[in-house]
Computed example of a mutant assay.
Amino acid sequence: MNPSAAAAHPVRPPSTDLQVLAFDIFGTVVDWHGSIRAEVEALAPGVDGDAFANAWRAGYKPAMARVMSGELGWTRIDELHRLILDELLPRFGLAQLDEPARQHLNRAWHRLNPWPDSVPGLHRLKQRYTLCTLSNGNLGLLTDMAKRAGLPWDCILSAEVFRAYKPDPATYLGVARVFDVAPHQVMLVATHHDDLAAARQCGLRTAYIERPLEHGAAHPKDSTPQPGNELHCASLLALADQLGC
């Protein structure tokens, strides 16, 4: 950490209470946009991979809302991604893709690449804290992703475990229950302010990670610090610095 960064983000003494770091995954730990864009462009040269990736991701929350409203029964993210994909392909001139190609493309979400700081940052944090996922991604997806990318989780937790999607309180409080700790002994690490706000309402501590390129270089994300988050970090390595790891 350089001196100017240290001055801006002084190292905090590690909390004796904090025991578990729970991580949002899509965007926070892995680069979904860059990964999906590359997969689409490799499968169908000439397609606008940037627009395709963002359109696929844009269908994510509406699809989950159909589950949460009861319109759909409990449905894993793999199946929701496929529903969105099948609706999306004709818009991009890809209605002719056969079933094997569709299955391969849908599993691109299992093959997302980590941000460059993710693996080294997680290894440092793992020395002091228990690390788990807290993602709407299903268990098989998160396991495949971790194995391929070398993400050193102590435990993989998913909306699938709690049969509820974030921001349902059952997900955040479920982490504390799994590890038999109080909510304030869990910190959610994420790049999405709505996720962090919902976690705080359940008593969790929160750390925001800057990912300005989450939606691609053409769509930079505002990473201005917002009140409420205990920590605001440029990367997972910076989070390790701030937590004294």
Rank of each mutant, 00 (worst) to 15 (best):
S135C: 07
W32T: 04
L231E: 04
R163I: 01
D144A: 15
A207L: 10
S35T: 09
W32C: 09
N136H: 02
M187G: 03
A101R: 04
A238H: 15
G216R: 00
L204M: 03
G59K: 14
Q96E: 11
E41N: 06
N138H: 14
L243V: 06
Q96L: 00
S235H: 05
A63L: 13
R102M: 08
H81D: 08
A65D: 15
V189M: 11
R12M: 13
Q226N: 02
N2C: 13
A198V: 02
A63F: 05
L122I: 09
L125I: 10
L122W: 10
D48M: 05
D222W: 02
N138V: 03
H193F: 01
P114Q: 10
Q96M: 04
D98Q: 01
L134R: 00
D31Q: 11
R102V: 14
D98A: 11
R12I: 09
A108I: 04
L204Y: 01
D50G: 11
R128K: 14
L88H: 06
R111W: 08
T133G: 05
R163E: 12
V47Q: 00
E39F: 12
P90Q: 05
Q226S: 00
A58P: 01
H193E: 03
K166H: 05
D48H: 06
P62F: 01
Q19C: 10
C132P: 12
L105H: 05
L112F: 11
T28C: 12
H81F: 09
A7M: 08
D180P: 00
D24C: 07
A42E: 13
V29Q: 02
D222T: 05
G244A: 10
D117K: 13
V11A: 13
E210W: 08
L88M: 09
P120D: 07
K126M: 07
P45W: 01
S118W: 08
N136T: 14
Q185Y: 08
A6H: 04
R82N: 07
P90I: 03
P227R: 04
L131E: 10
G27H: 01
K61G: 09
L80F: 02
Q19P: 00
H192A: 04
R57T: 12
R211K: 07
Q242V: 14
